[in-house]
């Protein structure tokens, strides 16, 4: 098995390098996310894991990671990510583990990461946060501190082997009107940049989908709401897959560039 992986490794890295971007974006129409939300920096931990043939992904977040109005657990974005990303990187395997739950805050997530990461040794942590903080008016400063401390601890224990991608709240007109979302989004951007994590802006992408009338859960008729939620989560998983693939492409180029004499 190990030999098989070793034989496959160069091929995988090569494939990642040569894969035309258009192919990576082979998704059903309607999912095309705005390019400014898809700019990913290199993900060295994921590149290394993929070249070894197995990527362990840890998803931590609040309600949307566990349901979010979809038809069931299999339709949520983390589960869809497992399938979609897995299909893209085959023969490498992807294993997604989901933690957190409804109403959990960034501080709860930081605790979960501190407890579970040493056991799970994830290569990629996808951390969805900010919704509960904004909805309840919790301190944005404490949210930023939770992110910075948590990522710093991961850096200390796992170095470059674990990438962190933050995911901001879902776009909603109701939410925008009744909570100070912009403050929390601004602070999340800074927290990501300050800790060396990346931000996948679900808000920007979903707002784009809503404004271009491609996918608008808030205005979907009640009868079709579950179906639209399923579609939304599937599309989010596809956008996230594209984001991760772009990050690994960059990471692979950096590695290839670094190895050149």
């Amino acid at each position: 098995m190990a030999r098989l992986r070793d034989t496959l490794r160069p091929a995988l890295v090569l494939a990642a390098l040569l894969l035309p971007p258009g192919l990576a974006r082979a998704e059903p129409a309607g999912c095309s996310a705005p390019p400014e939300a898809m700019e990913a920096a290199p993900l060295p931990g994921s590149v290394a894991a993929l070249s070894r043939g197995a990527l362990r992904v840890m998803v931590v977040g609040s309600a949307s990671t566990h349901g979010g109005g979809t038809s069931g657990p299999a339709a949520t974005w983390p589960e869809r990510l497992d399938k979609v990303l897995g299909a893209h990187v085959a023969p490498a395997t992807v294993q997604v583990s989901v933690f957190g739950g409804r109403g959990t805050t960034a501080a709860d997530h930081a605790r979960i990461i501190a407890e579970e990461a040493p056991r799970l040794r994830p290569h990629l942590i996808i951390w969805q946060l900010g919704t509960v903080e904004a909805a309840r008016g919790l301190s944005p400063d404490e949210m930023v501190e939770a992110v910075q401390d948590s990522v710093a601890r991961l850096r200390a224990s796992r170095g470059e082997r674990t990438d962190v991608v933050l995911v901001d709240p879902q776009f909603s007109r109701f939410f925008r009107a009744n909570a100070d979302v912009e403050t929390y989004r601004d602070r999340l951007r800074l927290a990501a940049a300050a800790s060396g994590a990346q931000l996948f802006s679900r808000w920007t992408i979903m707002r784009h989908w809503a404004e271009t009338e491609r996918l608008d859960l808030e205005r979907a008729p009640r009868a079709s709401r579950t179906a639209v939620a399923d579609q939304l989560h599937d599309c989010l998983a596809r956008a996230l897959t594209q984001f991760i693939l772009q990050g690994t492409l960059r990471g692979a180029r950096d590695r290839a560039g670094g190895e050149r004499p």
Partner: peptide, 23 residues
């Protein structure tokens, strides 16, 4: 009153579950 009105107007039931957590 405004929050109550817009919640009813948008009828956003289970979509953003966390929003039900407002104090």
């Amino acid at each position: 009153a405004q929050v109550g009105y817009s919640a009813a107007a948008l009828d956003q039931a289970a979509y953003l579950d966390e929003l039900q957590l407002d104090p």
